[in-house]
Design a protein around this nucleic acid. Sequence first.
RNA 1: GUCCCCAUCGUCUAGAGGUUAGGACUCCGCCCUUUCAAGGCGGCAACGCGGGUUCGAUUCCCGCUGGGGACGCCA
Length: 515
Amino acid sequence: MVTRFAPSPTGHLHAGGARTALFNWALARSQPGGRFLLRMEDTDRARSQAALAESILADLRWLGLDWDGEPVFQSARTPHYQRAIAELLAADLAYPAFETPGELDAMRGKAREHSPGGGFSYHRPPNWDRAAALAKAEAGAPHVIRLHLAAVLALCGAEREIFAVEDQVLGTVEFAADALDDFVLQRQDGGVTYHLAVVVDDDAQGVTHVLRGQEHLANTPRHQALQRALNLPRPHYAHLPVIQNPDGSKMSKRDREKGIAVDIEDFRRQGVLPEVLLNFLALLGYSPGEKLPDGRDLERFNREHLLRHFSLARVGRGNARFDRSKLAAFNQDSIAALPPAEFKAHWTTWCNRYAEDAWSAQAQKMGEARRALFLQALQPRSKSLADLTALDGPGAFALLKTHEFAYDEKAVSKWLRRGEPSGLERLRELRPLLAELAHFDPESIEAAVAGFCEARGIGLGKAAQPLRVAVTGGASSPPLGITLAILGQTETTARLDRCLAEIGGAQNSARKDSA
RNA sequence: GUCCCCAUCGUCUAGAGGUUAGGACUCCGCCCUUUCAAGGCGGCAACGCGGGUUCGAUUCCCGCUGGGGACGCCA
């Protein structure tokens, strides 16, 4: 079995493309001796970019997908296409046509007028003068080369041969005989179209199974017609459901402009682990159909599992919407489950590529020991690697400087102002205790605060919450000991002073006002 | 408009001619807890509609509706 992934380097690898690549990879790798090939469909010279081809390759590698041999670039295969065109021309299975794009537009418009919505299809007229046309083309008149469908049909035993697609996911799909016309094989500029290239290359590379998005389904009769015309074997076809946005629209570059992640690069930047993205992508339009011992569906699996168990029979037929919150949940679980060393490695890699300068400066200042505590505290609280350095994330308290974070008014009033004695008063007592602590590690801090509470016969929350609000501005953070230890003794003291001055001062004047 | 594909909780899905229609994510509640996160327990929530076939259909067939895709000298 030979499969292939054949992206066009006119954009980055996007979620749908990655899923197609993944399934092709899994299908080939699930078979002994199966091969998975890569081909860059860069026949559109104007839109293709070498840098994009490289980025697609990089994203595939990042996902952990490997391919056999070197990627084939269609731009380097022109002679093969020319040979195919020449062969078709010689057999009168293709012919030159001279309409300009403008003329074709007009013809389409006219066809629409006559039957509203009626499709336009191009066919060579019966009284067509082959010799004259060939001579005109030879003389240099601008022209395209079109497939001579009627002649191809004459080659077939039955029209079914090209109009019926035996799809391994969808079953047999029958197209109407007028679904095809004499489509263009070679453009005026001499470049061949996708249809010709794909058929020639799939044959040249020995591809046996073509797994692609459902948007290609209607192209398949064209490809089957070309295979017939060129006398090439027909691969097996399977068309995958389309991946959609949550609102049911197609994922597109437009969504990217709105800041919605679409490309693999986007998810990478957001701090999604590659194995998580791979896992999640595999769940769109596919289900392993396995139950766990406790009766749950198997949903979390890795590359190796997919490669061992993947089957086209488990591919769905309906389109799938991309649910980011589920991805986030998977990502958080996977991050939390990582061995700390691996987590650190992932995070370091991510930082080197994407982290903001603000974080870099802060990390420098933190030093190794506190940085380790930070990672330890944040690992189980991060939905993504980007969360760690996000100024609105769970680690923000450690990222912002002493005077940068804001106090949450509700938290302040609940934990600092209310009560008798108030939280502020507890803070005044706690400040020297913490400032003089010999060892400022999580355990010592916890012990000191616990001792403080015990001595006064109060619950831990009475001291922990005011402290938390004072040093983070809000009522939630990692456990108190580690929170303070991450900040360090100097910073903790400074923040307590800021709090006492700002909130304490404000409180005093507020009391006067109300009195 | 024409052609094609699809149709189970909001989303991803499992599923069988007879099931209390299962799981996951989201959301809600409770427990745990110094807060958050995590974890545990529980809850809300689906077979689009109309005809057949059948003892019985959510499952099979047809129609409708709805969603999606394709209709390029893009791929």
